[in-house]
């Protein structure tokens, strides 16, 4: 689904990603872990096209297309989704307006007909239930006045509404209490099927108790320095990153 080859990227002229190689296939969940400042969020932002990050080498193929060549809105329309670490408040724009606009823009790009208001409303109600948000959410402004936990739930709600092919979740678990973490994880598990894929960017092994990854990659100083199965998480939990990163310094 997505193939990342030797990806390098800079922010403010400083090279943060120093050659990332990663392949994610349909039906897989990958977790990217690593200490602060290792480049995890940079990777998420470069893949989704944030203009503060400048790709400086390598290539990314998403569903057969050169991803880095696409504008951020077109990446979304091709089926890429980023769950933000810090979701943005948009006062005065309701969740309904926001998501209906997004869904119809994505459909238009893919030569599909617009969603009917009824279909949309039913879908909103159904997906709101999954993340434990009540129907008043529909008319509320995007993230406005939401608590940190509500904002993260709303990211998962948007994920379920937009139903992309590849979801990159950037520290969606950080700052959540255990109840919120469960709800967010349930949402991701609900989303997950054999035709789509998830990349979880996280600090904490805790998330992986709820969303079981197929692969775990350790990112350090802009490179993936170790990959393994889900058992790697336990090892990291026990021993920290030191045993892997030692040889790298």
């Amino acid at each position: 689904m997505i193939e990342i080859k030797n990806l390098k990227a800079k922010i403010d002229g400083k090279e943060i990603l120093q050659g990332i190689n990663l392949q994610v296939n349909a039906g897989e969940v990958h977790a990217i872990m690593g200490p602060n400042g290792s480049g995890k969020s940079t990777l998420a932002n470069v893949l989704t096209g944030h203009n503060s990050y400048e790709p400086s080498g390598g290539e990314v193929t998403f569903k057969g297309k050169d991803l880095l060549d696409l504008a951020p809105e077109d990446r979304a329309r091709e089926g890429l989704f980023l769950g933000f670490q810090y979701p943005v408040e948009i006062p005065g724009v309701s969740n309904a307006t926001f998501l209906q606009t997004a869904i119809n823009e994505i459909r238009k790009y893919n030569d599909e007909t617009e969603i009917t208001p009824k279909e949309f409303l039913d879908r909103m109600k159904e997906k709101a239930k999954v993340v434990g948000m009540d129907n008043s959410l529909i008319s509320r402004s995007v993230n406005t006045g939401f608590s940190g936990g509500e904002k993260k739930k709303n990211e998962i709600f948007q994920l379920l509404m937009l139903n992309p092919t590849l979801a990159i979740l950037d520290e969606t678990d950080s700052g959540l209490d255990i109840d919120a973490l469960r709800i967010v994880s349930d949402g991701v598990n609900e989303f997950k099927n054999e035709n789509n894929a998830v990349i979880l960017v996280t600090h904490y092994q805790r998330l992986l108790d709820y969303i079981v990854p197929d692969f775990i990659h350790v990112l350090y100083e802009g490179k993936i320095i170790k990959s393994g199965g889900k058992e790697l998480a336990l090892e990291l939990e026990e021993k920290g990153y030191g045993w892997i990163t030692k040889g790298e310094n």
């Binding site: 096209g49 809105e73 329309r77 989704f81 979701p87 943005v88 926001f98 997004a102 994505i106 937009l162």
Partner: peptide, 16 residues
């Protein structure tokens, strides 16, 4: 700009 990116990343065009 960061708010702009958030909206763009949902597939919404720049003008909207």
């Amino acid at each position: 700009e960061s708010a702009m990116f958030y909206i763009l990343s949902r597939g919404i065009p720049r003008e909207k």
